[in-house]
């Protein structure tokens, strides 16, 4: 297959061949605890929706930063070892805070601890890596809305040490038991279903520029163009509506039809300080000279549009892509179907 991707520069990351103390060439992960998202399709019930999606993108050769998933099996082993309830129905009322505390402090099973350590080492040892990680919950529910209600602490960015990684993973597990998540499940009569969660640990790209691209204009529903929102730093500031991003429209032949520069007066960057949205990020002002300067070049916009269109074709749906540009290279973080199409009447 010829390359689908405009910048055919593969990440130099080397996926480790085996993890876990009992791993062998034949069965690298006998405990089913950790899965590297390196190109094979992955079972959603094992790694969660987010990881399965990343695995699919990686399999298509998209420029996705390397990642592994700590499986639902890992969570199950941990839950069993500290006696966590598996269903909401088994919960004692008002026990949630203690339950979450137990998740933060309880001892990890050896296989899980070992897998996490090996996974961290693979990132830390890579000469091309920035040794900064993003840790995110990857829910198994088919209902994507359920995933989004998993809780406040379901994402931790700029994780740099093994200790911090372990803590971040525990936070993601604990988010399964946030008040909001439990309430949501109760409302939907899911109390008898087994609650489980996977976690994605991914190399954090310190995006110089972040973008969200749509292969269909979400406002006009025009399908012959790609619409891109872009800003400085991490994408949190676009998603949260913190700033007015640049709004770029790219036509079917890759020509930039319009570039509307936004007032990007703030940006979200990794690091210490009052956390913005996700832990490990902070909100800082943008120097005034860059506020109304285009965040992307026309060439970058064209490349992103090409990436989006190719990917959409491969995936078989109109896609909403999130990604970033770092050190001049385009990275993809997420791709989802645009869900609002077809439910809205054309208003032209």
């Amino acid at each position: 297959m010829t390359s689908l991707w405009p910048n055919d520069v593969n990440n130099s990351f080397t996926f480790p061949p085996a993890v876990g103390p009992r791993s062998t060439l034949a069965d690298p992960d006998p405990d089913g605890v950790l899965r590297w998202l390196s190109g094979a399709a992955e079972d959603r019930s094992l790694v969660g929706g987010k990881a399965a999606s990343l695995a699919q993108l990686a399999a298509l050769g998209a420029p996705v930063p390397p990642a592994f998933a700590l499986t639902t099996g890992a969570y199950a082993a941990f839950a069993a070892s500290i006696g966590l309830p598996r269903r909401d129905a088994d919960l004692v009322t008002d026990a949630l805070p203690q339950l979450r505390a137990g998740i933060m402090d309880g001892p990890l099973p050896a296989s899980v601890a070992e897998a996490i350590a090996r996974g961290f080492e693979a990132f830390a040892g890579d000469p091309g890596s920035t040794a900064s990680l993003a840790v995110r919950s990857s829910g198994t529910s088919e209902d994507s809305a359920a995933s989004s209600f998993a809780g406040l602490h379901d994402t931790v960015l700029d994780v740099r040490t093994l200790d911090a990684l372990e803590r971040a993973i525990r936070r993601c597990w604990a988010s399964l038991w946030s008040d909001r998540a439990v309430a949501y499940r109760r409302e939907r009569d899911m109390a008898d279903e087994t609650s489980e969660i996977a976690v994605v640990v991914q190399q954090l790209v310190r995006s110089d520029v972040s973008f969200i691209a749509f292969t269909t204009d979400p406002v006009t529903h025009a399908r012959d163009r790609v619409v891109i929102d872009a800003t400085w730093g991490l994408g949190e500031s676009i998603v949260s509506g913190l700033i007015v991003p640049d709004h770029v429209t790219v036509g079917p032949d890759g020509e930039v039809l319009d570039y509307a520069v936004g007032d990007k007066h703030l940006m979200v960057i990794p690091g210490d300080g009052p956390a913005f949205a996700s832990l490990g990020t902070r909100e800082v002002p943008v120097p005034r000279s860059l506020r109304t300067q285009p965040a992307m070049s026309h060439e970058q916009a064209r490349d992103i549009a090409l990436l989006a269109r190719n990917l959409s074709r491969q995936l078989g749906y109109e896609a909403d892509l999130e990604g970033g540009i770092a050190v001049g290279r385009i990275h993809l973080f997420q791709a989802r179907p645009i869900t609002t199409l077809g439910t809205r009447s054309d208003t032209r």
Binding site: D208, V209, W232, G233, I269, G271, V286, L290
Partner: peptide, 8 residues
Amino acid sequence: LASYPEAV
């Protein structure tokens, strides 16, 4: 400025 975008 180490964590800031390259443009900045």
